[in-house]
Every structure is written in structure tokens, then in C-alpha cells.
Amino acid sequence: MLVTFAQAVGDAMREEMRRDDRILIFGEDIAEFGNIFGITRGMLEEFGSKRVRNTPISEMAFIGAAMGAAETGLRPCVELMYSDFSLVAFAEIYHCIAKWRYMHGPEYKLPLVIRSAMGSSFGATGEHSNCLESLYMHSPGLLVASPSTAYDAKGLLKEAIRNDNPVMFFEHKQLYKTKGEVPEEEYTIPFGVADIKREGSDVTIIAIGLMVGRALEAAEALAKEGISVEVLDPRTLVPFDKEAVRKSLSKTHRAMVVEESNKTSGVGAELAAMMQEEMYDELDGPVVRVAALDVPLPYNIELEKYAIPDAEQIAAAIRKMF
């Protein structure tokens, strides 16, 4: 069945909440309003106000409450409206949630998911457009997912909700309306398993989130020029499927990382370093990074477009590798 990414996210929560009554959701404007993208619409009516709650605009408090509820036996799947707002509760996430079990002992499990809408969306500007995966990759103790399709979003979110570790779950705003095939039957996707979105033999593009689609567009264009591009979507950044990358490189021997976040200290920086440290023998040249410019994302939509990689930029960067 063909569903939107947004529907897939909502369905994942609904199905899990029907399966397990320890799961509850809370966050800003998720109850009557059904979240600003409509993702949780109808959930208040189905599950009641005990399990679907609006919070005040108090990220520190409700992230802290999610943690306290998780350690005492509930399974909260909370929503931070925009991933940008996770920084308001950054210490709660980075220090407390990530480190709690390590610092206090193994019985302190935190089965907790923090979902947020992320990324650029046509003039949302510097404080509502960030891609912050790399910040959370830097905090041992968290799991980080950033799906690119409706199918992956649903399967990964169901897995995240069932997982006993805290998960940062990023949903790209521009992907919400994209449609994809999702089976009627039950499925989950394990964390740490990459998906080859397109097979190829000349170069591997590791792309995440919105950039997966752009990498696929570039691959299509380059195919006509005789360059065969493999597009690898890690789907989760923590844990990261190194073996899938190694396998792909053993075929292509060239690697590129495409991300929407700005380049400095981004996901690409980590992955390029990792490949050069651990997979050097497979590489015929340096790992290339294609990323956003190191600026706050401008309000002007033409400049916003200019700052973020598109298919043409990705294709141009690949041509230079040969």
C-alpha cells in the first residue's frame, strides 16, 4: 500500500500503542491539534488523554519526565516538535539520558524515543532547519535513526519503540509528504542495518535523510554518462553498519558522503575519517564530502537552495572523482 512518510510514522506509533499499553506519547501540540504536521491526528480520540498528552512549552521538563517515566516502567515516545528544540534540552539528553545507565548501573534502562521533525523546509531559517544527527552521534549511550523512506520510517520507529535504549529519531520535514510502498503486514527494521537504495559498481554514495533521494537522482543522471553509482543509506547512524560500507567499497573503491548538515564536524567528517582509518585498503582515492555550506541556513529561499547540496552538485562532485 502506498502511504506518505508522515502516515507511516503515525501508523508505527498507533500499531505499537495498540500492542503495548505501557507506551504513551507526549509533546507540544500533539493531542487535539494532532501535531503541526498532522502525524498524531486521531490518536487522542483513539488512546485517550492518559496516553496522548499535550505538554507546556517546557522541553527540559518533559524530556526529564520522559526519562523518569521510562526508568519506572513506561515506554514514552515523546515528540520534540523540531529537532532544533532538542538543544533546549541538550544537557538532559546528552548528559542524563545518554549516560544514565552507564553512571548508575545496568538496571537503569531507558526505553524512550525522542522523535523530531528536522531539516530544511523552504525558508524555515537558521533555528528551524538544523540537521543535528552528528551532535547525538557524539554522545555514547544514544541510538540515532534518520530514515529516508516511508517504509524505513515505519519499520525503524517500531523497532525504536521496542528497544530498551534511548533513541533519537529524526524525521525530515520535506519527506513527510513523500509516498512509498509499505506492506500491510507487521514488520520492523533492526538498527545498524544499512540499505542499498541503488546498486552500482564505480562509486559508493553514503547518503542520509533527504539526501538519499538527491543521491539517487544524481545516480540516474550519471548512469547515462556511464558512471555506475551505488547509493547506501545507513538508516541508523548509531549503530552504524560498517560492514555494509566495507562490502560496497570492496566493489566500488570510491566513497562519497552526502549530508544536509553543514560540513564542519558533520556526519561526513566522522564517516570519512572512519573509512580512511579502517578501510583504507579499499579506497582508490580520498573520501569526498558533499554537505551544506557552513552558514546558518538563510531565510531567502534561493540562498537556502544554494547552501544545501542538490543532485547536480552531487553529480558534479562525482565526475571530479574520475
Binding site: 527540559m60 521538563a61 524530556i63 526519562m67 523518569g68 517515566a69 526508568e71 519506572t72 538532559e92 548528559h95
Partner: peptide, 12 residues
């Protein structure tokens, strides 16, 4: 940063 934990336990 942990002050909200009690609220979470109370929610439970």
C-alpha cells in the same frame, strides 16, 4: 537537569 525525573516517576 535531573529535576524532572520525579515528575516522570509521578506520571508513572
Amino acid at each position: 537537569c535531573d529535576i524532572g525525573l520525579a515528575g516522570g516517576a509521578a506520571m508513572r
